[in-house]
Nucleic acid binder design. Structure first.
Lengths: 359, 359
DNA sequence: GTGAAAGCGCTAACAT
DNA sequence: ATGTTAGCGCTTTCAC
C-alpha cells in the first residue's frame, strides 16, 4: 500500500541504506548516477518517509511543543503565528496544548510532552511559575514567551515594557502636553510597574513635575479606564492627555471623555498600549504602542531551535521593542486614515487573491 | 537515562509484554498481583511510554492535524479551541498548520501530514477547494469546518446561516420594526445569499413587503457598512432598523447613523452577525447573532474521532445554530449591561483564580 | 561507493 | 497467566 524505502531500493536496484542516504541528503558519499536514479524512482513511486519510524531511530521529531495559557487571548494567536512561521522555515512543526490557566491541565500537558513527541517546549503567556522540577525532567530545551516574571528568566522573550511605554509618553510630550494622566494596570504586576516607571521617568526627563493625582490604577478592563477618565475630568486642573497602560482602558477613558461632552483628541488626547485589533475600528481610532507579539513568537522560535541544534547553553532574556502607531486619538496629524495593513486579514486576503469562496 | 519497558520488566520481575499489557490497560488477562507490582514499579521509576515507538508499532498517533487558512482570523482560534477541547477529552493531541491562503503552503502542509504523524485532518475555514486528489492520497479521514461551499459537503461542519440570520430579523420584527434595511455581504458568496434569503423569507413570513432599496451589498468591511448606513439615511422613507450580515458592517452603519446626529437604538436599531469580541466594547454594545465557532470546532472533533475509531462512513454536513445576543443596539431592553461572561478571558481568569502574575 | 547487520521501544502473534 | 519471538520503517555503525 504505502511505499517504503525497501520498495524504492528494490525498484532502483540499490540497497536500503543507499536510498536512505540519498533521500535524506546525507553528507555520506554516493555516486551521482545512484543519486539520480534513486531520486527519480522515489519521485515516481511517490515515496514519503515515515517520520514516525525516523523519529524512533534518530530521537528527533522536528516538532516543538507550544504550551499556552489561553488560545483565546488576543495576544496568543499572533505569538503562535510568529513561532510557527519561523519553525516552518526550518521544517519544524508544532504541537499546541492549551492549559486554560489550570495547573492540572498544565501538568497533563507537560506529561504528554514527556512521551517525547517534541524536541523542545515553548511556554506562551504563562503568568505563574511552572514547577521547574517538571521541566528538568524533560531534559529538553524550553523557552518562555511573554512571561510576566519580575526577574529576567533564562531563555525567555518578553516585551520591553519600559521602552514601549516611554514611546507613548514621549509622543504626548512631543505634541506639547505637560499634564498627562496615566491609567496604570493593577498594583502588584511588574508590567504595571514598568509602564508606570517609564511614565514617571520620561516626564522627569522632560522636566515635567509629577502629580500623583494624575495616576489612577485600573484593572486592565474597559470599565476601569472609564472610571479613571471620569476621575481625571473631575480634577480642578484636569490633564490634557491620557496614557493608558492598555488599549481597553484607553477606550474606556475615551468614552468617559466623550460622555462629558468633550472631544478626543480635540479636548484630550489619549494613547493606549497593546495595539489591539479594535484600535482601528473604534472612533476615534486609537493611537497606541504595540506589544510586539508576532516578533516575540518568531524570536522564541529562533531561540528554541538554537537550543535544539547547538548547545543547551542558557541565553539571557530577550526584550522586544514595540512600535508607536499614530492614529486619531492623539491629534498628531490631521488625516490619519492611512493605509495600514488591514486587520481583518481573512477577508482582505480573500479579496486580494481574488479567491472564489463558492465552489 | 530514560526508563523503558525493559527496565520496568527487569525490576518487577516480569516480562516486557506483561508489563506492556498492564500499562496499556490491555483487556488481556493479567494476574492481580502482577498488575499491582508492575504499576507500583512503573510509578516508582517514573516510566513514560515512548509514544513514538508505540505509534510505529500500532500505526496510530492519537494526533489530529488541523490545517488552517489563517490562525489570525478572529474565527479560527475559537474553532481550534473547540476541536482541542473535545480531542483532549479523548487523549488526542493536534498539530496545527497554517497555510495563509497560499495554495503552495497548503500543499506543503498536506505533504507534511502525509508523513503519517496524524490519524486524520481537519480543515478549518478553507474558502477554496482543496484538491481532492491530494486528500484521497492521505487515505486518512478528513473533516471540513466552516467551509463556505455552496453545496453541502460530506463530513463538514458549517454554521446554519439561514437559521441564524432569521433569528436577527425575527428579533427586529418582534420589536415592531417593519422597515428593516439589510447590509448584505458581497455578491457571489453563499454566506451572503443565505443570510439575504433568510432576511427576505422572514419579512415575507411576517407579511412585510420587500423593498429593494432597503438592501445594500457591502464587502464585509467596516467602511462598506458605513456607506450603506449613509445610503439608508438618504432614503425618502428611511428604515427604522438595520440588519447587517456581519458585526463589522453593523458597526459601520452605527457610525453613519451617529454621525448624522441620530441615535442607536433611539432612532434606528442595528443588529449584527458573528458575535465578534468588539461587540461588547463598542458603544452602544452590539446586538448580534453568534457564529457558533466553538461548537463547530467541538463537533468537528467528534466527527473526526468517529471516523478514526469506527467506520470511514461519510456523514452528512452538520449545520450548527447560533444564538441571538441581545445587547444595546437594538433597543430591546432598557438596561443591558448584563452579566455576560467577560470577553477578555486572559485577564478575567487571572483575577478569578487570584493568580499572582509576579513570581 | 555500497551493502549487510543491528537496533530505536514498543505491541501483537504465537507459544507454553 | 506469562514469556518468547518477530517486526513496525528507518538510520547508523561497520565491513568490504
Amino acid at each position: 500500500m504505502t511505499v517504503k524505502l525497501e520498495d524504492v531500493a528494490k525498484k532502483s536496484g540499490f540497497s536500503v541504506p543507499t536510498v536512505s542516504r540519498v533521500l535524506t541528503n546525507s553528507p555520506y558519499p554516493v555516486s551521482e548516477k545512484a543519486r539520480q536514479k534513486i531520486l527519480a524512482v522515489a519521485q515516481e513511486m511517490g515515496y514519503r518517509p515515515n517520520i514516525i519510524a525516523r523519529s524512533l531511530r534518530t530521537d528527533r521529531t522536528d516538532t516543538i511543543g507550544i504550551v499556552v495559557d489561553d488560545l483565546l487571548s488576543p495576544f496568543t494567536p499572533p505569538i503562535i503565528r510568529g513561532i510557527q512561521d519561523y519553525l516552518a522555515g526550518q521544517n519544524f512543526m508544532s504541537l499546541i496544548l492549551n492549559t486554560d490557566f489550570n495547573p492540572e491541565l498544565e501538568k497533563k500537558a507537560i506529561d504528554s510532552l514527556l512521551g517525547r513527541p517534541v524536541d523542545g517546549i515553548i511556554f506562551v503567556e504563562f503568568s505563574h511559575q511552572v514547577p521547574l522540577a517538571e521541566l528538568e525532567m524533560l531534559n529538553k530545551p524550553f523557552v518562555f514567551v511573554h512571561r510576566l516574571f519580575g526577574q529576567p528568566v533564562a531563555n525567555s522573550v518578553a516585551p520591553d515594557d519600559y521602552h514601549n511605554a516611554g514611546l507613548a509618553v514621549d509622543h504626548l510630550v512631543g505634541l506639547g502636553h505637560r499634564r498627562i494622566g496615566h491609567v496604570s494596570g493593577p498594583q502588584g504586576w511588574h508590567t504595571t510597574a514598568r509602564r508606570l516607571a517609564a511614565y514617571q521617568d520620561r516626564l522627569a526627563a522632560h522636566g515635567i513635575p509629577l502629580d500623583p493625582a494624575l495616576v489612577r490604577a485600573g484593572d486592565w478592563e474597559l470599565s476601569s479606564g472609564y472610571a479613571a477618565g471620569k476621575d481625571f475630568l473631575s480634577l480642578a486642573q484636569r490633564p490634557t492627555a491620557v496614557f493608558a497602560a492598555n488599549d481597553l482602558m484607553a477606550l474606556g477613558a475615551v468614552y468617559a471623555i466623550q460622555e462629558a461632552g468633550l472631544r478626543v483628541p480635540g479636548d484630550l488626547a489619549v494613547v493606549g498600549y497593546d495595539n489591539r485589533d479594535f484600535t482601528t475600528i473604534c472612533r476615534p481610532q486609537l493611537t497606541t504602542v504595540s506589544l510586539p507579539v508576532y516578533e516575540m513568537g518568531w524570536l522564541a522560535g529562533e531561540l528554541m531551535l538554537g537550543q535544539v541544534a547547538d548547545s543547551p547553553g542558557a541565553v539571557e532574556e530577550i526584550k522586544v521593542k514595540g512600535k508607536l502607531y499614530i492614529r486619531e486619538s492623539c491629534g498628531a496629524e490631521p488625516a490619519l486614515h492611512t493605509a495600514e495593513e488591514p486587520r481583518s486579514r481573512v477577508i482582505s486576503r480573500r479579496i486580494l487573491l481574488n479567491l472564489q469562496p463558492d465552489e
